[in-house]
Design a protein around this nucleic acid. Sequence first.
DNA 1: AGGAGGGGATGCAGTAGGCT
DNA 2: AGCCTACTGCATCCCCTCCT
Length: 366
Amino acid sequence: AMMFSGHLGEVARVAVEEGAAGLSRFSLRLFTPIAPMLANSAEDVEETLERLGEAAFEYKLDGARIQVHKGGDDVRIFTRQLQDVTERLPEVIEWARAVPVRDFVVEGEAIVLRPDGRPFPFQITMRRLGRIKDVEHVRREIPLSSFLFDCLYLEGEGSVIALPYQQRIDLMSKVIPSSFMIPRIVTNDRAEAEGFLARALAAGHEGVMAKSLTAPYVAGQRGFHWLKLKAAVTLDLVVLAAEWGHGRRKGWLSNLHLGARDPESGQFVMLGKTFKGLTDEMLKWQTEKLLSLEVSRDEWTVYVRPDLVVEIAFSEIQESPRYPGGLALRFARVKRYRPDKSAAEADTIQTVMGLFQKQRGEGQPG
DNA sequence: AGGAGGGGATGCAGTAGGCT
DNA sequence: AGCCTACTGCATCCCCTCCT
């Protein structure tokens, strides 16, 4: 495992080039992890079907990606970053051994579910996955489920990464119990796909993945054969402060502190920071603007009069041990500035708490 | 296509400090 | 001297968008 603890590029070089296969650049060996195939985002089902035509739609679970290698009695499990996490996931070892095929490599998602099958927040899965000590004890309290969506190698077939996706799924379905397969449909019908997406979201999941039926497994690449579809949620928040950037952002105010309005106190509740989504032009503009609003500063940060409103996209609201409001945005990024809005029109902490409750509700029974 | 810019959370290991 | 807690730093998981 030591040799794979380094950077992704190292691993890519370790894998053997397979020029003859053309589309699939790397061959696969058991117990040598291969860089996972990645996805791009799509706006909606319509765009997805335009790009892919008839496609597979699968639930997108907010867990941790796993690549499971089995050779005889030996099982090894790798993360997206190709870390060997075998010892932490006894559940996976058990089902992999139970599959009546000697050798395989499959990919999927490991996630912690509630008894009724709805997902816990990602934080819970992380709590479990990060746990190294007392694994046998935590697995009773935080059991891990697996849902598989691809097959890279199969006894009797060898490497199947060059095969079209639908053929890989067909091969996998013959040996993997259906309860371990990710919920999936194949369609070119917009309404059907939209219904499937709505069910995924209603079940508390992140959204869906849409996948070309004909594409090979393109290791390590973020191509357009796989597209992710998620619910788009944004908040209009107020910039409370900004930190000086590093590297190519040196000299610009980059990392924004974001706050929601609290009508009761008239103050703003910080929900986290972001530096994502900013073009150089926006960096330049906001540096000038924020300096004009400066009220104080320290070594890294310029604090400003709460005035500027930004539209912020994010993936979910998390419980935060760090911020006073007890909530923080996960993967916040700037969509655009809202010069048309004043700070008094920004979204409130009550709105954020409402979204958080709704989010929890979707992950809970009833 | 890859790098840069850094977000939040977790668990773990190490250290500091207080207490018995 | 030994034990407990608190804090910090590190590695790892999840992820995005812009720029070269």
